[in-house]
Simulated assay, not measured.
Amino acid sequence: MRIRPATDADWPAILPFFTAIVEDGETYAYPSGLSSDEARALWMGQHRVVVAEDDGRVLGSATMGPNRPGRGAHVGTASFMVDGAARGRGVGRALGEHVLAWSKEAGFRAVQFNAVVETNTAAVALWRSLGFRIIGTVPEAFDSRRHGLVGLHVMHRAL
C-alpha cells in the first residue's frame, strides 16, 4: 500500500466511498444528498489530502492540516475515510500513521480530532492504539442513523 498526495484525478475513486460513508449516517455530520461538486469542496478543499492506494486502486483518503487558524495553528487535525471494500486491511492505520508522521514533520505539537462518534468503536480503538486519548465527550452531539443521539469524543495526541 502506498500513501501519496491526492490529485483531482483521484476524486472519481474517492466519491463512491465518500458518498456511502456520509449516507450511512454513522460517522460524519456532512449533510445527505451532496452533489459531487459539494462533496469535492468539503473533502478535496482541505489543507493536505492524501490517498492510500494498492495496485492503482484508491482504498481510502485522509485530510490534514491545522485544527484552528492563528493562535491554534500549532495543533493539527485530520479526517479519514476508507472504502468499505478495503476495511480490515490496515488502510485506516496506515493513513493514521501517515498523518501523525506528516504532522510532526510539519511542526504541529499535537493532533486533535474534534468529532469522533462514540459508537464508531473501530475508529475509537484505532486512535487509542495510536496513542490518542479521549479528553472529553460532547453528549448527544451526533444524530446517528442507527443509535439516535450519541456523543462526540474529542481525542488528542501530543507529538
Score class of each variant (00 low, 15 high):
residue 84 G to K: 11
residue 99 V to W: 00
residue 62 A to P: 07
residue 88 G to R: 01
residue 19 T to G: 02
residue 80 F to Y: 15
residue 21 I to N: 05
residue 82 V to L: 08
residue 90 G to R: 02
residue 27 T to Q: 03
residue 137 T to N: 12
residue 79 S to R: 10
residue 82 V to C: 07
residue 74 H to V: 09
residue 4 R to N: 06
residue 86 A to M: 05
residue 136 G to E: 13
residue 13 A to H: 06
residue 82 V to E: 11
residue 83 D to L: 09
residue 115 A to I: 13
residue 53 E to H: 03
residue 56 G to I: 07
residue 147 H to R: 12
residue 123 A to H: 13
residue 72 G to R: 04
residue 24 D to V: 01
residue 131 G to T: 08
residue 148 G to M: 09
residue 76 G to Q: 12
residue 57 R to L: 12
residue 151 G to N: 12
residue 113 F to L: 15
residue 103 S to F: 01
residue 55 D to R: 11
residue 14 I to N: 04
residue 134 I to L: 11
residue 13 A to K: 02
residue 102 W to V: 09
residue 24 D to A: 15
residue 126 L to V: 08
residue 145 R to P: 02
residue 21 I to G: 04
residue 42 L to P: 03
residue 36 S to H: 06
residue 61 S to D: 02
residue 122 A to R: 12
residue 93 R to G: 00
residue 85 A to S: 15
residue 117 V to L: 14
residue 102 W to S: 10
residue 132 F to K: 12
residue 157 R to I: 00
residue 53 E to F: 03
residue 132 F to Y: 14
residue 91 V to H: 00
residue 15 L to Y: 14
residue 125 A to Q: 13
residue 17 F to V: 05
residue 46 Q to A: 14
residue 14 I to T: 08
residue 56 G to A: 09
residue 15 L to D: 14
residue 154 V to I: 15
residue 134 I to H: 10
residue 72 G to W: 04
residue 102 W to R: 10
residue 69 P to V: 12
residue 110 A to H: 09
residue 95 L to P: 00
residue 60 G to A: 07
residue 83 D to Y: 07
residue 105 E to L: 05
residue 101 A to T: 04
residue 97 E to N: 08
residue 31 P to C: 04
residue 115 A to P: 11
residue 143 D to V: 11
residue 95 L to T: 00
residue 156 H to E: 15
residue 146 R to W: 11
residue 42 L to F: 09
residue 17 F to S: 04
residue 6 A to W: 04
residue 45 G to M: 02
residue 112 Q to C: 11
residue 29 A to Y: 02
residue 99 V to M: 00
residue 65 G to M: 03
residue 155 M to F: 01
residue 87 R to L: 07
residue 120 N to M: 08
residue 49 V to L: 03
residue 110 A to Q: 13
residue 113 F to Q: 14
residue 98 H to E: 06
residue 148 G to L: 08
